[in-house]
Design a protein around this nucleic acid. Structure first.
Lengths: 222, 222
DNA sequence: CTATGATAGTATATTTTTGCTACTTTGTCA
DNA sequence: TGACAAAGTAGCAAAAATATACTATCATAG
């Protein structure tokens, strides 16, 4: 490289800006496991590997809007719980160029999702989190997301975002158990969430055991 | 030049990429209050208003490195506790152009900080959080930082980052009380932190009351 | 050299939460 | 009609959180 070329390059880099993307980890519960939506990459880099849903941030949209757009394009979903996770800016996280990724996670009850034709599919979140075959730093993002969910289950109502609007208490308890990774005592669990739920007058039916009451989340009066 | 004139000439049309900055809220405790470091802006926009310490993210540095650099330039500090907070990307958060800001917060004991000549000064964090006279969305960032600290005090050791290496229990308790905004019971507080501290054989002296034992943070054996 | 004020530090009672076990209830199915 | 399976409830013991009362030790004033 000549000096002239170097200076040109240096000058350009000085005013250059990193690209900014959002990457979104959509979690749901299927088969009594926490799952996360991943897509098979068709292009380099990481061709053939799994990656999160993502997109470049447009100049005329906020970060949240970018996340919603990316999610909507891949799943058709809207109006679901989502939250920003963390922003990743290591120099080498994308081999092509400098990319800063604002990560999000989202929660959806599996009953309300109908994956359209496409390359997006749910995988065991734990397996993704522990795999070293995932594109970019997306395994780490999933790990971070799982951790965040685990923490927030204890002091927020995010678990309700993983069940349908109408649900039974055994169903809700199962969600807590899966997220926390441990069995809970029925009686204690019910005491704890008693003030967060509202009974309907419906019950389950058709199963070979005692039917279960159906509840909804109580709207908090603020 | 008025702010309007300035904005008019600043007609950098839509680039394909947003600018990325880091903004850092350095917290400390002074006069029994949580304080945050702010600087008086000398340029438009928000000339004369208070803003957080910040910088553009260089193309050859990670986000964390940018934050450390910004902090070091303004305070000379290094090796202090800091953590990423949230990333702000509203379209109108900077009137000049599209700027995405990755915010951080940092904690330092006031005893170990010696502000160099400059425009940086500590202000009451609550006052900054509730003021509508702060540059950009930095009031919101401070609010968010305070909230994060309040939460983390309960399940991490961040309070130790606000006292010197050697401290007394009344001193440490005061930090907890300021962060949580409520009085704590002495006996209960001591039970709770008993396994996090290590006694030295030193005591305070010279004060007109019973002297106090001096402790250090116990290194956790992992 | 003693009483006092002020804060450090400890002992103990009370209430709430959690961990756990055992029991009763109510459906389907053979 | 009895067996099974899961829903739902009762209640106790241990542990943790909450709260109050007490003792200890310094400097200083008288």
């Amino acid at each position: 490289m000549t000096e002239q070329e170097f200076l040109k390059q240096y000058h350009r880099e000085d005013y250059d800006r990193p690209s900014v993307t959002v990457d979104l980890a959509l979690f749901t519960i299927q088969d009594e496991k926490l799952k996360v939506l991943m897509i098979h990459r068709k292009e380099h880099p990481f061709q053939g590997k799994l990656s999160l849903v993502g997109t470049f941030v447009g100049m005329q949209e906020s970060l949240d809007e970018s996340a919603v757009r990316a999610l909507n394009q891949k799943t058709g979903l809207h109006d679901i719980y989502f939250e920003q996770l963390y922003t990743w800016g290591n120099l080498d996280r994308d081999p092509r160029m400098r990319v800063i990724s604002v990560s999000y996670y989202a929660l959806v009850p599996s009953e309300s999702i109908q994956l359209p034709e496409g390359d997006a599919q749910f995988y065991s979140a734990d397996e993704i989190a522990n795999s070293d075959e995932i594109a970019f730093d997306h395994s780490q993002i999933v790990r971070y997301g799982i951790e965040r969910i685990r923490n927030k289950v204890n002091y927020t109502d995010i678990a309700f975002s993983l069940v349908p609007e109408e649900f039974t208490l055994p169903q809700l308890q199962k969600v807590y158990e899966i997220l926390l990774g441990q069995k809970l005592y029925k009686a204690n669990f019910r005491k704890k969430i008693a003030d967060k739920i509202q009974p309907t007058n419906k019950m389950t039916s058709g199963e070979a055991h005692r039917p279960s009451h159906i509840y909804r989340k109580k709207e908090s009066i603020c």
